[in-house]
Design a protein around this nucleic acid. Structure first.
Ligand SMILES: [Zn+2]
Ligand SMILES: [Zn+2]
Ligand SMILES: [Zn+2]
Ligand SMILES: [Zn+2]
Lengths: 129, 129
DNA sequence: TTATTTAATGCAACATTGTTGCGTTTTGCA
DNA sequence: TGCAAAACGCAACAATGTTGCATTAAATAA
């Protein structure tokens, strides 16, 4: 394993993801760090951040891939991505429902690789308007 | 609303989806009906078939969009999918884990529309080999 | 059967999202 | 300060999906 470096572009990307209260897509992140680095670099940074367990990758119900820094997943402990996500069909935002843990009890014959637990609907903000 | 027509291309696309034992992506469908119609036409046919409730649009855990025929759906097209699904990364088959009900307790401010609960991994059949 | 209506198609062109190769720059550290 | 390699910019490529418009063909009425 190579030793990760803390570059300005990496800091900028991580900052945008951290300061957002919903998951961001690659185009959204690139838009927000515009000028900080190249488009390709954003892709590579995102891949590295996922590998380093700094952020996690969320697939939306429409297939778009978003990235979020989950508050429940601390760097110190294992990234157990066993919680629900809420995907608003109005504002398209995805948020982690970290408190909603899903307990899966599959037979040992199933080898689990990844969980994909998303609820679509209308979020509180869009509900009010 | 316009009146749908039963074209040869539409029949070919629906036949491929129906005769497959797992969900197919647009490229896979186009490959199988090769010569029957244009690439763009496949996209439009798929959109129409979804609108007509003839097929399902399924977002896989990797974000790829696949299409499958409605088999367990009744006429009213009710999708009470409050159970888990297992998506095998080896044989590509998606099965309903009907006994695995997920209980969701969201605040009333969230209006739930649909649940997407899928686990990816290797199914028992592929595990054996 | 033939004519009419318009759903559906083909094709080109465009848009978005993601990947790869390679030479250059920058970071972390000795 | 000097070095190894991690990270970057850029160009080029690839996969996937969309739009506009002229043409074709499916359903139905005459
Ligand atoms: Zn919303
Ligand atoms: Zn999360
Ligand atoms: Zn399998
Ligand atoms: Zn099901």
């Amino acid at each position: 394993m190579s030793i990760p470096r803390n570059t300005k572009a990496k800091q900028a990307v991580l900052h945008e993801i951290s300061s957002s209260d919903f998951a961001l897509s690659q185009p959204e992140i690139f838009e927000r760090v515009k000028g900080a680095c190249d488009r390709v670099t954003v892709y590579r940074i995102l891949d590295r951040l996922v590998t380093e367990n700094k952020i996690h990758k969320i697939v939306n119900v429409d297939g778009t891939i978003n990235y979020a820094r989950c508050t429940s997943c601390d760097e110190s402990h294992m990234h157990a991505h066993d919680h629900l996500h809420f995907s608003c069909i109005a504002c398209k935002k995805i948020e982690c429902l970290a408190e909603q843990i899903v307990h899966v009890n599959l037979p040992a014959s199933y080898q689990i690789k990844e969980l994909f637990l998303t609820i679509s609907g209308i979020c509180p903000s869009c509900q009010a308007t």
